[in-house]
Design a protein around this nucleic acid. Structure first.
Lengths: 206, 206
DNA sequence: CCTACCGATCGGTAGG
DNA sequence: CCTACCGATCGGTAGG
């Protein structure tokens, strides 16, 4: 199951690991060359620039996320079911590519124009997919939420920290992570929905 | 209400804004000097090194977060009430210092040892405060959660994206943000807790 | 893929 | 706070 990587793919993979751990700007082409066991100048036989690597990683991951949500939304169902599938799909992509996901989520701001703008537009398009599920759930009465955009961003931020700790050999499988997150985000922490009212009770106190 | 800033404070404030927007590594002392209207060499009359600025920002914010949670936990109450206050306190600190918060949350990895280790230890201590509230809530039956550490990190990640969009002049006030987040995290999205069961129904289907 | 090298820029210091 | 400057390192190119 070990894929044979072309030199270009090796460069991308090694660079992704370095970009994640040191950040794009703090990673030099000499760092990358050393990690690959070659000279810095040799890298340029395979790629045009340092930024090209970042572009490839960012847009490859964008594509993966879109393909995953396309698959998740291919089946119909209640908004709840669709949201659950979208979350699971997102978690699958994140856990399958933790390093590339970290770069995708944190290093994109080092893209120069027009790629920087393209990235932001794609991100908004992706978030819009979640927003439309959210709207459907609000219309159908499945969801009750203060602000739909706010809710979507809270959900996504609840998903996007996974790459910071997920390890394939860890005790939690991707499906389990997705299930736990869905449970928390859809049903909340409290055992009964009245519990929160307690914190407002002082309003009724003389 | 405009505080008069010492030159050192001006340097820190300007550097914080640059570190947030460009990242620590991509911000040069010449960038900082230009933003301040002085020469790069002059900065060193006030600070010892570029990293010293980062250290000061990171540990000043750490202190603010601890002071806030100390205040939030000074009053007793149910775990639900304490969690709600801890969330509100965290949101207050985040919204009052969006730029410093961004640096605190994203640029700390550029700290060198031993500060890097100190930072991580402080972060764990802070998370432990939330974990202990979570444990109390589980013991008392207020909370039902798959994994307590997982739940805490999901909550914090749901809070820590706020700095990316919050504007003091925006339509949502910090208290409102805290309330919306608490509502979402404690009660979830769904109008009734049975809704999620629908997505499991295929298990019972022949 | 390497040697040899480029101009630019980096964080920081000396000395006033 | 400035001028003048340091050695180190940067991303990248020429030419093989």
């Amino acid at each position: 199951m070990e894929a044979i990587l072309s030199r270009k793919e090796q460069i991308e993979k090694t660079a992704t690991a370095l970009f994640k751990s040191k950040g794009f700007s703090a990673t030099s082409m000499r760092d990358l060359a050393t990690a690959l066991g070659i000279e810095a100048a040799s890298i340029y036989s395979h790629i045009k620039s340092k930024e090209e690597i970042l572009q490839r990683v960012c847009f490859k991951m964008a594509q993966e996320f879109f393909e995953a949500i396309d698959a998740a939304e291919a089946q119909k169902g209640t908004a709840t079911a669709r949201l659950k599938r979208a979350i699971a799909a997102h978690v699958q992509v994140l856990t399958k590519n933790t390093e590339a996901s970290a770069v995708f989520l944190h290093e994109w701001r080092h893209l120069s124009e027009p790629m920087h703008g393209t990235y932001l537009a794609l991100r908004d398009k992706y978030e819009a997919r979640f927003r439309s599920i959210m709207q459907a759930g609000i219309s159908s009465g499945e969801f009750s939420v203060p602000d739909e955009k706010f809710a979507v961003l809270t959900i996504l931020s609840g998903l996007n920290w996974i790459h910071t700790w997920y390890k394939p050999e860890g005790k939690m499988a991707p499906e389990e992570i997705a299930e736990n997150l869905t449970e928390m985000l859809l049903n909340g922490l409290t055992t009964n929905k009245q519990a929160l009212q307690d914190t407002h009770s002082h309003l009724n106190t003389p």
